[in-house]
Design a binder for these strands. Sequence first.
DNA 1: AAGAATTTCAACCGCCAGCTC
DNA 2: TGAGCTGGCGGTTGAAATTCT
Length: 481
Amino acid sequence: MSYTTNESDDGIMPKDHTDSPSAEEACSGGNLMEVGPLKKGPWTSAEDAILVDYVNKHGEGNWNAVQKHSGLSRCGKSCRLRWANHLRPDLKKGAFTQEEEQCIIELHARMGNKWARMASELPGRTDNEIKNYWNTRIKRRQRAGLPIYPPEVCQQRLDESQESQNMSTFLAGHIHPDLSQTNNFEIPAVEFKNFGLKQGFTSYSPTLLDVPARSMLTQGIGSSHNYYFMYPPMHPSKRLRESDTVFPDLNGCVSNALPAFNQYEYEDSASEKVAQPFGLSSPYDPDLNANDPTLLVGAPFTPIFGNSTLVAGAHLLPHCLHLSLVDTLIQSPPNEQTKSECLSPRNSGLLEAVLYESRMLKSSKNNSSLQASNTSVVPGDVVDNSPLNLCETGWEVYGDPISPLGHSAASVFSEYTPISGSSSDEPMSVETMPGRKVYLEAVDRVSTQYGGKKAISNQMDFSRPDALLGLDWFGHGTEQW
DNA sequence: AAGAATTTCAACCGCCAGCTC
DNA sequence: TGAGCTGGCGGTTGAAATTCT
């Protein structure tokens, strides 16, 4: 839409001022309003006054009635939006404080693009505001070749992931059969709400439990998209509302699962939209696996957070089967055939992966200590390619679009492939956060997976610790947001 | 000073889930 | 049970404002 300042009685009017049926349709959810043409574009103060007056008298909600009763030529949606984003009395105006910025970053690390949920944890701020803030900052950082998340956030998410992993491992091994027969394995979304600034950010660990089964099914099986396995091009809001998706555990119980993982698209320097690697890689991708064994370091369904092989297994194992797969599961119980197929690059079946993961669970338990030891690398060391290497599993393979070790890690590394001070031919390790290093060679591989047109000029030198660690993340140092 | 480039942000759009009838 | 309505969400757009050259 293009706006022109048309000094009509109302003030600024959009060019298409809209009486177009399509606009009405969009606004009213498909049904045309009985009343005349609906106005679009910027709100005037007169309109604001009408809306405020109406809400004061009648309260929020029933937004379509606003038009009918107040004479506003605005659709209900528009009224709701205007109220929520600008007229609400409890809105906090002005720039985000540093504390809020920190909060947003951490919330985004936990939630991804769940602006509404983030807004609910930032009193007085709207989802739109947060979304705008995030997008502009991200763009800025992307242009500057800087990582999206502060290393401490990454570290925090790693730690939380570790905790989650431990808990999940516990659950996987200790779920009482009676419990599994019920629907009690749901984790209420409320758990993740209202973790305000004062309380820190501890709860939301996007794990596979959070991944809508449909996403897996629609994209995971037979998907030809590298890294797209858990990152379907479906509408994010759809995923968000898939908490009713049922996830039977291996005992046949059906559980709800939290949605969480989120889509995040970014635009590279060539304005080429690419799907950001999602939290899980597709270990079955032929190219991936064939070309690079190191990219197989995690078990199938291994999600984003570093050594989270366990996380995936633990969460996924009891939950992440779509109901439609239950029959399949029953009819085709796991067997050795399944196992071998799981390891086949050609096999992109979800179920097999789940079963595989369950098997991996035991062994990975034993490996966790090794993982931990492998992640502490003294500067100058080179991280080995061991599947147990936390960093590589977490940062290299899995691109979570929403989390420090997923999206940020992956996106950071895929978007900001370092060049300065290093040879592109030479595997380069870099300590991206205390005790954690990654192979940049592998990063390059991830990067080029999306067309290889990454902005070489738009890259930071990851070999410089200050590039990642020396920055004031909120733009109060050398680098501005 | 002027034009270009970039940033900001309000508003729109399409989709979806829940509710009601 | 299904259609229609409503509200909510996340992504996108584009005018205005700001910064850069």
